[in-house]
């Protein structure tokens, strides 16, 4: 048996205060555990991993773990990551972003990082809300749900992160929830290893800012909702159209191994130098 928690403790920064800053039941802690397990499983050293985070609740994750960590500006984590990866392709770059971070303010960087196929792992922690600023609607807040800036219900439609990433040509596109930690470990391990741009969307509950305003009694109920409404993508595809409504497919949606931008750039350099 893997002594999971003891292993995780080894990767945490012992100079930081624990328990961490997240609210009770927040899925972000589960994701942090999954990142650590995946890195460990791949046998990577702490030195070769760069964890880059944006701003917001997810942004606070970087400080807790003993990798090279960068807490960037709001929405721009992928731009820093692009620079790091191009400057040193040997580094394994994992980018942690929230939904507002990755898709609202950082939407442009997200689609272009996917198009460019830069070799980083993009984790989108989708909790459907701006948590840290107090529960404002984000670009993944579902239609008709409530937030502090949509007190009469949300009129806009929300992004489907997976379809967006697929449309932009990301190599590896996947979705899981904080309740499906084993699947998360599998997806993350695969994403970190895979060349090019790899997306893992994690649905993670924010009871404090989203659940309370949207008729959830407690955070456990939100996890139960994930259990009830998610379905393996393979099974989802077999469902007739009319039964798909309201179901959230999880699993792997795209699995390509096209070389990342940094790899292609390296090849260009070699080609130019061999001509000389």
């Amino acid at each position: 048996m893997v002594e999971t928690t003891k292993l995780i403790h080894e990767y945490l920064r012992h100079s930081k205060k624990f328990p961490h800053v997240y609210c009770p039941g927040c899925g972000h802690g589960i994701v942090l555990g999954s990142i650590i397990r995946s890195v460990h499983h791949l046998g990577l050293s702490k030195d070769e991993v760069v964890l880059i985070a944006g701003i917001g609740c997810s942004g606070r994750m970087a400080v807790y773990v003993d990798f090279n960590t960068i807490h960037t500006t709001h929405g721009r984590a992928l731009t820093f990551a692009t620079g790091v990866k191009l400057a040193n392709p040997k580094l394994k770059v994992i980018v942690v972003m929230g939904d507002g971070d990755a898709l609202s303010i950082g939407g442009n960087h997200f689609i272009h990082a996917a198009r460019r196929n830069i070799g980083v792992t993009a984790l989108v922690l989708n909790n459907n809300i701006y948590g840290m600023t107090g529960g404002q609607s984000s670009s993944t807040t579902p239609e008709n749900s409530y937030s502090t800036t949509t007190p009469y219900g949300h009129l806009e439609r929300d992004f489907d992160v997976v379809n967006l990433a697929l449309g932009c040509g990301a190599n590896f596109v996947s979705r899981t929830t904080a309740l499906h930690a084993q699947l998360m470990d599998k997806l993350l391990t695969k994403a970190i290893e895979n060349p090019g741009f790899n997306v893992v969307e994690v649905l993670t509950p924010c009871f404090t800012q989203y659940g309370r305003k949207n008729k959830f009694k407690n955070v456990v109920e939100m996890y139960s909702w994930y259990r009830k409404n998610t379905i393996k993508v393979e099974k989802y595809k077999e469902l007739p159209e009319e039964k798909r409504a309201g179901k959230i497919p999880i699993g792997v949606f795209s699995d390509k191994q096209e070389p990342g931008f940094e790899e292609k750039y390296g090849q260009l350099r070699e080609k130019l130098r061999s001509k000389k």
């Binding site: 960068i70 731009t79 820093f80 620079g83 790091v84 442009n108």
Partner: peptide
């Protein structure tokens, strides 16, 4: 994004 990438590369 340009300056973000430059910061990343410098780091």
């Amino acid at each position: 994004a340009s300056l973000g990438a430059v910061i990343g590369a410098s780091l």
